[in-house]
């Protein structure tokens, strides 16, 4: 892997895309949906916290979990480091680049100034691959950028050592060994089992399918939490961004998961998985309707109680559909593991 030219490619999601690119660079041919599916990345969580200015939701597992679960299930080993001292973090990255080893870094998305201003927000869980150092600038392979990008040293340092929730602390990683033979059957079913378990078996009311229901119940109360109509419109339209634009591959990762199940069905020659992939694709289509509906009512400022109840109803329907889907998938994973 050392010395080979790094191939930049866009991907749907920064963490799964970064991992895919690094593994491909290391000689392991694996697709982004496989990385995402094997790691059990699909999820749902609804959060209200002092750390967020407004209630929010996530559609994927905890940041970093895609890497750790994937490593465990396919046997890839990553070198990982965090730094107390930013100077040490910078030195280590420069050392790796001087050895022509591309490394993934955890960053605050806000400082990725090669991306359009309207998408950049403070979130400490953006992953990029740093490919090269040219003078005072770093060459970045960011899954959300069509081309390799250049980022100045100051911005990269700020991004790598930003404080707050999920502070990166200069975290970087790169693969050090890839197994010669991987038991994909076992890895796929483990990934499916864990994702299904987290979607339907967690007791917390804000996680998994229960989290989708909580989102449906709470969204009708959002007008009470918003500063004014324009703020409410912004937050409602963010439903679309979280589901479609913020690195999900569409429909809150449901389309990517469908692609994973389709690929797994071909790999394992399993007709049931093919059927399930079609079903989650349909579920995703309905999620996309929700995101388009949210964008429409947000722009029109059509945010009265009836419209929000309609939105809530659509989200409840998704909860019902996903509960049935993931229960069946969990049962299937127990039978076929």
């Amino acid at each position: 892997m050392k010395g080979r030219t790094f191939k930049h490619a866009m991907a749907a999601h920064c963490e799964s895309g970064t991992l895919t690119a690094l593994l491909n660079h290391a000689g392991l041919k694996i697709s982004e949906p496989m990385v995402f599916g094997i790691s059990g990345g699909i999820f749902f969580g609804y959060f209200e916290s002092k750390k967020f200015p407004f209630p929010t939701f996530v559609v994927r597992s905890r940041p970093g979990q895609i890497r750790t679960a994937l490593a465990r299930r396919i046997g890839v080993k990553f070198a990982e480091r965090r730094f107390r001292n930013p100077a040490d973090g910078e030195k280590e990255l420069d050392r790796l680049l001087s050895l022509q080893i591309p490394a993934a870094c955890q960053t605050d998305f806000f400082y990725m100034n090669y991306l359009p201003g309207h998408v950049r927000v403070h979130i400490n869980v953006h992953f990029v691959v740093v490919v090269e150092k040219r003078g005072e600038a770093y060459i970045i392979s960011d899954c959300y950028s069509p081309e390799l990008a250049s980022l100045n040293r100051d911005s990269l340092m700020k991004a790598r050592f930003a404080g707050g929730s999920f502070a990166p602390k200069g975290f970087l990683f790169y693969p050090v060994s890839v197994p010669e033979a991987i038991d994909f059957r076992k890895a796929v079913w483990k990934g499916i089992r864990s994702a299904s378990f987290y979607m339907v078996k967690l007791p917390m009311p804000f996680l998994g399918v229960k989290g989708i229901r909580m989102f449906a119940q709470k969204v009708v109360d959002w007008p009470r939490l918003a500063r004014d109509t324009e703020h409410l419109s912004h937050e409602i339209m963010k439903i679309n961004i979280f589901l479609e634009d913020q690195g999900t591959g569409g429909a809150g990762f449901r389309f990517m998961y469908a692609t994973f199940l389709r690929e797994a069905s071909e790999l394992l020659n399993d007709r049931d998985l093919l059927e399930m992939s079609k079903r989650i694709m349909e579920i995703g289509d309905r999620w996309r309707e929700i995101s388009l509906f949210a964008a429409r009512i947000g722009k029109r400022r059509d945010l009265g109680p009836d419209r929000l109840r309609e939105l809530s109803g659509l989200i409840h329907e998704r909860a019902d559909a996903e509960e049935i889907f993931f229960k069946e998938l969990l049962a299937m994973s127990k039978k076929k593991k």
Partner: peptide
Amino acid sequence: EHQLVLYVEKKDGSYGPVRTGSYITKNY
């Protein structure tokens, strides 16, 4: 101006990635 990757059902029935523009950025 704002490109992203979505996973879709392709013309031949297979599922896979497609690079496209952002719908919400374009329209909103």
